[in-house]
């Protein structure tokens, strides 16, 4: 019984972290699906979202506003606005001028952008870890105190629900809305979409903005869940999220969700039953194995070699 509860506890831990990976992974998967490049700076956009949310929360606290829903909504809005603008600007400055060149070039530009943004925040906000207030505390308990009390905190539930809402909204948006249809058209064939009168530049910008907005949501949620932010934490989170995107099949939105959850659970099970030191080894090995045996990921479409 105790072992079972322990297992479920680790499963919940894994699903929580996995769903935020999924939120970040959307940014990678949409961008890759449309212009076929890895947006290395996406992890930094997420980090900036977390910082903005923290700045907004601290600012409201200084003003003496403490009504929780208001604080959360203001923080969310600020984070989304700043991150989306950042996503837009990054695309405009670093990726649009190099689009269509040799595929190494946008990638290197992206790595440069990632280093730049890390240091931008580092210079502006310092390198210290800054505590993030735990706005949502408490949770449910299962099991008695003398065996193993399993707990689900409210923040974990908030993370699940928010992720689900975001994913559903995004899927609807992509399948129903005009821009969503245009997105799909552009990802099918950029040149053709252009000929058909779709403003592809605008669609690509929109992709970056949507991805960045979701990353900002993840930034706020994870900031509250973990408890601190620092300028370097975006990079590794971005790497994990990218792994999740590839795992699920890059370019596929349900794939990003699935990949994120699998990766999160794999990590927490590794920490739970083996050792936390090998968490990253397991996630990267998982990535390599998937790519070797199913190079297009779990839900990806096979790539056709165009001659």
């Amino acid at each position: 019984m105790q072992d079972l509860l322990y297992f479920f506890q680790q499963l919940i831990n894994g699903l929580t972290i996995g769903s935020t990976y999924a939120l970040i992974a959307i940014g990678y998967t949409m961008v890759y699906g449309i212009i076929g490049m890895i947006n290395f700076a996406h992890g930094e956009v997420y980090m900036i979202g977390a910082y903005t949310a923290l700045i907004a929360i601290t600012g409201l606290a200084t003003l003496g506003i403490a009504w929780l829903p208001l604080v959360l909504i203001v923080a969310l809005i600020c984070a989304v606005i700043v991150s989306s603008s950042m996503g837009w600007a990054v695309e405009r400055v670093a990726y649009r001028p190099v689009r269509g060149r040799h595929r190494l070039i946008p990638l290197i530009s992206a790595i440069g952008m990632s280093i730049f943004l890390q240091n931008y925040v580092h210079l502006a906000q310092g390198s210290r870890n800054i505590g993030f207030p735990a706005l949502i505390e408490g949770g449910f308990q299962f099991g008695s105190e003398d065996t193993f009390p399993m707990s689900i905190s409210y923040i974990q539930i908030t993370i699940f629900i928010t992720t689900l809402i975001c994913m559903t909204a995004l899927s609807l948006f992509i399948s129903r809305s005009r821009i969503g249809r245009a997105c799909r058209a552009v990802s099918q064939d950029l040149g053709m979409a252009n000929l058909l009168g779709i403003d592809t530049n605008r669609i690509i910008s929109a992709t970056f903005v949507i991805g960045a907005a979701l990353a900002a949501v993840a930034g706020l949620l994870l900031g509250m869940y973990y408890g601190s932010v620092d300028p370097l934490f975006g990079f590794i989170a971005g790497l994990k999220a990218f792994t999740a995107a590839v795992l699920g099949g890059i370019g596929s939105i349900p794939g990003a969700m699935l990949g994120g959850l699998i990766l999160g659970v794999a990590e927490s099970m590794t920490s739970g039953y083996l050792s936390g030191e090998y968490k990253d080894v397991v996630s990267f090995s998982l990535l390599i194995l998937i790519l070797l045996f199913k190079p297009t990921g779990l839900l990806g479409k096979p790539e056709v070699e165009k001659i």
């Binding site: 400055v93 001028p97 290197i108 790595i111 440069g112 952008m113 280093i115 730049f116 943004l117």
Partner: peptide, 10 residues
């Protein structure tokens, strides 16, 4: 360094 990498690519 980061900015130079981007500008160089552009």
């Amino acid at each position: 360094f980061g900015a130079a990498m981007v500008l160089m690519m552009v």
